[in-house]
Amino acid sequence: MGQLLQYGINGLMAGAIYALIAVGIVSVFKATRVVNFAHGYLIMFGAYFYFTFAVLVPQAAWAPEWLQSWRPDWMIEMREGLPMFSPLAAVLDWLANGPRILLGLAGALICNALLGLLIERTLMRPLMGQSVFAMIMLTVGLISILSGSAQLIWTSDAEFVPALAPNTPIRFELFGQMIFLFGADLANMVIALVIFAAIVAMVRYTKSGVAIRATAEDQSTAYSMGISVPKVFSRAWVLASTTGAIAGAILATRNGISPALGLFGFSVLAIVLMGGLDSYLGVFLAAMIVGVLEALAQWQLGGEWAEIVPYVAVLLVILIRPHGLFGTREIERI
């Protein structure tokens, strides 16, 4: 039982990150009916922006020293004599990186929002009124542009970034089994869940959210009711880009950065299809199911199966419910 819980929790932590990635795809789809195949690459840009502001800028000759490593006297005193991997040492080391982590997050959020806005204004908006298929194909083309641009700007070098939270080990006993968790992963999960909940609340309870939902129902009617559909499009892209920036920063802290990070988006597309392209609740559940299935398959069957089993489940769900777990069923009259 303890083992099951251990792997279950590990799976939920991975699932929360999948959910944070998926929320961007759903937001764009809800507002524009466009499946954004390039979302993984938006996330990759978010990761690179985080790297730029958390690693490259603090290393610049003109940057103040405290930005690179903030170590006031009291911290140096506390740090002295602590073993390298003690929990307190991990917290203090993380605090020393605090200024650049904050700068990295702020930079990633702003730059990725601007990137999302740029894509929407220059590429997607001119296609408004055209076939949705054309817009979807455009996002496929965007993959090459974003992937190539990242290599030109940041090269293909693998890079590493500071963690968003102290990576202190957390140990507790449950059902006679010692459970191990990583502090940073737990914090990542909390960040992902809070953002996910905030977006769902925004879509449900705010005016902008109502506008997104109305546009999703019928663009022409929304227009005639005074809703600025182009603005809704912009907001959806900015929302996807900013959540993508956080997801990118989290992925970068877990796995390092390289242009291959963009590929991560494709595995999440399957999760979105499983949950239902226009359902936040559906993709949340799907992300958690896939995360847990991956961890359990790894535990019981090994890594060879961990990459297959969850996606077999995705396939089964789509076969039984082609519109996903909670997606809107579309009936076409012929």
Binding site: A14, F182, D185, N255, E294, G302, G303
Partner: peptide, 12 residues
């Protein structure tokens, strides 16, 4: 233990 080549689930 086999892992993904990229983006492995490190805690597991």
């Amino acid at each position: 233990e086999a892992t993904r080549e990229q983006g492995a689930d490190i805690p597991t």
